[in-house]
């Protein structure tokens, strides 16, 4: 299904995501906080885009706008040529926290994404089973979120996002709250799953390694207001091997753009980090 739409949108030449001259301002009491400025981004179907930037650069806000949770902005956000008017089944999100409903089992939670899918009960059951298998949790279908580890719960929420076969997978620092080992393992799974499903993915992260390892292209954001500093293509070799020279070179380039020069003394490192945070 998603493969069909992939080729359809590819032949018609309409990009999967097209953001033009996006400006976003939050109105907090009497203050106006300019969070996103002059964002222009085009994403082709099937692409995996990673957005990296310091905290507070408006990464998550950008995802909310693509999802349609927030419609108060200037400019254009188009998905498959149509202006986003609200959440829809073509886009699914994985939040930083798993956000599973604690009173539903793993399969019940995955099922909440199929309520309006039009599938029969049997088809739903199969889709849920297939996607729990995809994230390696077949044995935990009837477990409650409280009985799962953080990594397992996040995998259930990935299954929930994928089960309705969205064209767009929006990932809001989905691995940020996990321990380092689980995070590395899930990065591999995520990459494999997104490639298999053929969906377009936009992943927001502050982990530069993750951005390089997962993305076809990296969007580097500068903060206050959030604006695009650079869009860098990721060489195939860098995506395959975390210790390849291509990976290291690109990671250093991104770190440099973020104002953090890697490989220098720790003191220098800390200085630049504080400069980024200010």
């Amino acid at each position: 299904m998603s493969h069909a739409s992939f080729s359809a949108s590819a032949t018609s030449g309409v990009p999967a995501l097209d953001i033009r001259n996006l400006e976003k301002t939050f109105h907090v009491r009497d203050n106006d906080v300019h969070v996103l400025s002059g964002i222009n981004l085009t994403v082709e179907a099937g692409e995996f885009i990673t957005i990296v930037g310091a905290s507070g650069c408006g990464k998550s806000t950008l995802l909310r706008l693509i999802l349609g949770l927030d419609r108060d902005y200037e400019g254009d956000v188009r998905v498959n040529g149509e202006t986003v008017s609200g959440p829809g089944p073509d886009r699914a999100i994985v939040f930083q926290e798993h956000r599973l409903l604690p009173w539903l089992t793993a399969e019940g939670n995955v099922g909440t994404a199929l309520l309006y899918s039009g599938l029969t009960r049997q088809e739903k059951r199969e889709a849920i089973r297939d996607h729990l298998e995809l994230v390696g949790l077949s044995a935990f279908a009837t477990a409650y979120p409280g009985q799962l580890s953080g990594g397992m719960a996040q995998r259930v929420s990935i299954a929930r996002a994928l089960v309705n076969r969205p064209r767009f997978l929006l990932l809001d620092e989905p691995l940020g709250a996990l321990d380092a080992l689980t995070r590395l393992r899930l990065q591999d799974e995520l990459k494999r799953i997104v490639a298999n499903e053929g969906s377009t993915a936009v992943l927001v992260t502050h982990d530069v390694d993750e951005a390089v390892y997962l993305g076809h292209r990296i969007v580097v954001l500068h903060p206050r207001p959030g604006r695009i500093a650079a869009i860098l293509p990721v060489p195939a070799a860098a995506r395959e091997d975390r210790s390849s020279p291509e990976f290291v070179a690109l990671r250093d380039e991104v770190l440099g753009l973020l104002g953090v020069e890697s490989g220098k003394s720790a003191v220098r490192h800390r200085e630049t980090e504080t400069r980024v945070a200010v």
């Binding site: 959440p87 699914a92 409903l101 909440t112």
Partner: peptide, 27 residues
């Protein structure tokens, strides 16, 4: 708020929101 946002992102109808989120949360 996180559950409300989740329900919105899954386009829950009012009834499904009450049934799947509000009532269990209130129990």
């Amino acid at each position: 708020k996180t559950y409300k946002e989740l329900a919105e992102s899954l386009s829950f109808t009012r009834w499904d929101y009450v049934r799947l989120v509000a009532i269990p949360n209130a129990l």
